[in-house]
């Protein structure tokens, strides 16, 4: 099995986010980039398949700040090849990113075969203008299934996998998918594996990141962003100040007043 994991870099939302002077973008100077959580899960799911049934795992991503670290980490975890696609793109246009990745897939596989799975994260926090996985699937003419939390080969049937997709309220669905296909991974079957820094450092020393340059086909059908802003707070919580003793005492008072404690 040949698995291509398309990793996406997104801003770390634990850090404060600021709006750029044009009022229509994030201030790129003020943000720290990281691999999206669902990309990390996509990588883990690929590595689980590699461990269980054997697969060649390639990780590729469009150039972004901190990307090298993410790729070295992927290499240390078990990706056979890690590839950086230059130049950097605006992350808010899934169709542009997908056009770059479509060309990349064509370069890598020509026409993907029945042993090929293309993993993306299911959805990213910056997917304002579409989602990468289904856009890429459409551009490649491949099937797509998203919000997937488990994927296994169908026993005795070459070129088919069973995918579990989440709906809501804990309800899930089982699907059979004929490959090649694009799969949006929501969460891997197990948490992302820990990789010691020594292994990452070894990957860094080997300088194993490949690089390829692809110019996107830009089409003029993006949405027109009027402004981006930090939302105004409409129903802010009543904040309880003080030391832990004071806050705990006030909370118990509130719980009692509201009949939560007997």
């Amino acid at each position: 099995m040949n698995i291509i994991v398309l990793m996406k870099m997104v801003p770390d939302v634990v850090e404060p986010l600021e709006i750029a002077e044009d009022g229509k973008n994030l201030d790129k100077e003020a943000i720290r980039m990281m691999a999206s959580e669902s990309s990390e899960h996509a990588l883990e799911q690929a590595l689980i398949l590699k461990d269980s049934v054997g697969a060649e795992v390639t990780v590729a991503a469009i150039e972004a700040p901190e990307l090298d670290d993410a790729l070295f980490s992927a290499s240390a975890k078990g990706a056979v090849r890690v590839i950086k696609i230059t130049p950097e793109q605006d992350g808010l246009r899934a169709d542009i990113s997908a056009s770059v990745l479509k060309e990349f897939i064509k370069q890598e596989c020509g026409s993907p075969g029945s042993d090929t799975l293309i993993f993306t994260g299911s959805q990213a926090i910056d997917d304002l203008q579409g989602e990468l996985g289904p856009t890429l699937a459409e551009q490649l003419g491949l099937p797509f299934i998203g919000v997937v939390t488990s994927i296994k080969p169908v026993e005795g049937e070459e070129g088919k996998v069973t995918a579990i997709k989440e709906y809501s309220g804990g309800l899930r669905g089982e699907y059979e998918v004929a490959l090649p296909a694009v799969v949006g991974i929501q969460a891997a079957e197990q948490p992302s594996r820990y990789v010691p820094f020594a292994k990452i450092r070894a990957a860094m020393k080997s300088g194993s990141i490949e690089s390829t340059e692809i110019t996107p086909e830009v089409e003029g059908r993006g949405v027109e962003i009027a402004r981006m802003y930090v939302p105004e707070v409409t129903g802010r919580a009543e904040m309880i100040e003080g030391d832990p003793e004071t806050v705990a005492a006030r909370l118990i008072e509130i719980f009692k007043q509201n009949g939560i404690l007997g």
Partner: peptide
């Protein structure tokens, strides 16, 4: 004019369609 929430609800964007 559509308002969308991004980045875990920390940023909003107002946008129109072409």
């Amino acid at each position: 004019v559509f308002t969308s929430q991004l980045f875990g609800g920390k940023i909003f964007a107002d946008a129109t369609l072409p």
